[in-house]
Nucleic acid binder design. Structure first.
Lengths: 186, 186
DNA sequence: TGAACTATACCGGCTGGACGGTACATTTTC
DNA sequence: GAAAATGTACCGTCCAGCCGGTATAGTTCA
């Protein structure tokens, strides 16, 4: 853990700068300064700005994968429901961390759109899984609503208070639980 | 109209560059080149890059306001329903134009986050209106789903085909029509 | 009516600063 | 003392904004 701490700190500070000050302040010098090292030191760990962004995206992807239990194998039908529910739970549980992680996405889009290819793949996979569940249209709506909350927040457009957000998320969770239980009602 | 064409063309080209090539290619020189004038000529119409971005945002805000019929006064309750439905209809009707208009948003966030203040105000107003309708939680979910579709598309993360998107939007429209008719069912 | 003047639209070279990246020196760690 | 980690100094490029022009259409006035 200790030998990784500088690298971790660099990533953390990069995210903070992007979210607190804006992407235009995301420069190698600024990140190095905030991380308490020099630019040369930073470039030792990430040998280009692109590498730094890739590092942030990797962080994001890992977190998403772990949190959602992507690695666990279940039936395709239940997978969507579980992933949506887990995503909703995480957003309610730790909104700050969630927001921070999307900083890499913003940086990637600004620097070089090709960097988001892995994320595109993730979205594509979700779409494919979603198509398999009973009420795939509803699942898609929930999926986009989650994306909307996450991206709006990232852009500073979302001024929801916690209470309202919680209410929103619990309703979404309720809807998510319905996407594979249509048959029991109809 | 003719005396405005250069300014209009500049705005149009700026949006196209951002969406086609990425924000990193959005430079005054590139915009000028695409618009068929020189950088000096461009700066005659928009005397700074910030002014150009403000112009794009203004365009966006105007379009949104007109399309949604914000100016028409109805009861608060119906307003949300109407705005959501109109928004959904527009997205299905002219997705390309919808996408193009959000280019300004992306540029603004990169350049100077303060530029999106007017948009924040719009979002805030929406939230206030939404709180007034019968099923405000559902209305919020739809609102965020719309944002999610729009922003995902803008970032190139959305690889939906037209058919799926239409199905999605019609379901959303159906849900939107329900937000003020809960009382007739319960 | 035509000469002097003004406004509008646009051009293109220039500059100064910001920033990514390199090369190498220096310190720390084991 | 060697490898890892960090610092320092510098280079080259990119780009926003500035500025001195040009061209042309419209206006004023004698």
């Amino acid at each position: 853990m200790a030998q990784e701490s500088t690298k971790e700190k660099i990533l953390k500070m990069a995210k903070e700068i992007i979210l607190d000050k804006g992407v235009n302040h995301f420069t190698l010098e600024e990140v190095a300064k905030q991380a308490g090292i020099s630019k040369g030191g930073l470039l030792y760990h990430f040998n280009s700005k692109e590498a730094l962004i890739k590092g942030m995206l990797q962080h994001y992807m890992n977190d998403v994968a772990v949190e959602m239990g992507i690695s666990q194998e279940t039936t395709d039908k239940m997978r969507v429901e579980r992933v949506l529910l887990e995503s909703i739970r995480q957003m309610g549980h730790n909104p700050c961390e969630y927001e921070k992680n999307s900083a890499g996405l913003l940086a990637a889009i600004v620097m070089n759109r090709e960097l988001i290819e892995p994320l595109k793949e993730y979205h594509h996979n979700m779409s494919t899984w979603i198509a398999a569940c009973d009420d795939s249209t509803l699942a898609h709506i929930l999926f986009f609503a989650l994306a909307g909350i996450r991206l709006s927040t990232m852009m500073g457009l979302n001024d929801f208070d916690n209470e309202a957000q919680e209410q929103l998320l619990s309703r979404m969770a309720q809807m998510a639980r319905d996407i594979n239980h249509q048959d029991t009602e109809a």
